[in-house]
Computed example of a mutant assay.
Amino acid sequence: MLEHHGRFDYSNITKRPTYDWPGGKRLAVYVAMNIEVFRYGKGKGAAIAPPDQANSHSVYSYRDYGNRVGFWRLMDMFRDMDIPLEHQLNTAIYDHHPDIMERIREHGDEILGHGHTNSDEQGGLPENDERKLIEDCTRRIEKEEGKKPLGWMSPWLSNSERSLDLLQEAGYRYVMDWTSDDQPVWAKTRNGKILLMPYPVETNDNRGLVWYRYSSAEFTDMVIDSFDEMLEQSKDQPLVCPISLHPFVVGRPYRLRELRRAFEHILKHRDKIWLTRPGDICQHIESLPKGTVPGDQY
């Protein structure tokens, strides 16, 4: 037998119980914004330069563009289009870019835990250090926002073998780090269960545009094609169509113009979809009868 993570069993998506999203909809669409802060000259870089240049001033400033310019352009666009958002948040934002948080609150968006900075991965930490990171970030968000976040996405999706256990024990109800399904499914932890929220690898601008080097038009076409196909598939079962954005990537003028085209297309079908946030998806899943969602017996 092959090694296995032991978190959940195999489940064929075509053999699962069928349910609806609110309003009888079958396709849930959410937009995730990665609101990140980076160390200068230290830690992980972005894949836009050779490894020996990953911490250069040019790479740092490339990413800093997102908080100085890209975020604001994107938020203007989403305000004008009346699109709800979720933001996975490095808590260093509170110290370095407090006006970003003012704008997020103004828009009424959901906030996720996302570590302190995206220059540091989570997965390689000793258990006590990883627990402290989660607790510190949770405490800071609760202090600033008046409530704990429901969900977490690890910096760089980096998990240890204990991450799901620690997150569940810290009170998190869902996590974005596992990308193996188009429906939310439950994962087993040592003290209960936690929901695995669908999250995109390719309809993700940092992966698609920076890592895989799609053009802006190709990325937009991919978002549209994914949405159209999932809308068709969702006639038979509920699905989640996630879109992940990084202001330092897609907030650039020539990319923003193409991205707007993708959302203009999606909004033509607004009456057929549940345009929502992952926290609302989580709460809906939690309300369903036992036996509806894979892993709910954990």
Rank of each mutant, 00 (worst) to 15 (best):
P278K: 04
S119P: 02
I134G: 12
H87L: 10
N191E: 07
S11D: 12
L256S: 02
L239I: 06
L288D: 05
V69W: 03
G6T: 06
E258A: 15
W186L: 05
K272M: 08
K25P: 00
R131I: 02
P238V: 12
W156C: 13
D52G: 08
G66P: 15
D109S: 15
E86K: 04
S119H: 03
P17T: 03
K290S: 09
H87S: 09
L239H: 10
D109W: 06
F248H: 12
H5I: 07
S11C: 07
G43H: 04
E121A: 12
H5V: 12
P51Y: 09
L239K: 12
A262E: 10
L85H: 09
A49Q: 02
S11I: 05
H5M: 14
L196Y: 09
I35M: 05
G123A: 00
Q183P: 03
N55M: 14
R103I: 03
V185T: 14
M153E: 11
P22A: 08
L195T: 10
D221E: 12
D76N: 14
D80P: 05
R162K: 13
E232I: 06
F219G: 14
L133I: 05
L85V: 12
M197N: 03
I111G: 01
S154G: 14
L166W: 05
S215I: 04
E161T: 11
P242Q: 05
E161R: 15
V210F: 11
L166Y: 11
D9C: 06
R213T: 11
K132A: 15
E86F: 10
D182I: 04
E229D: 11
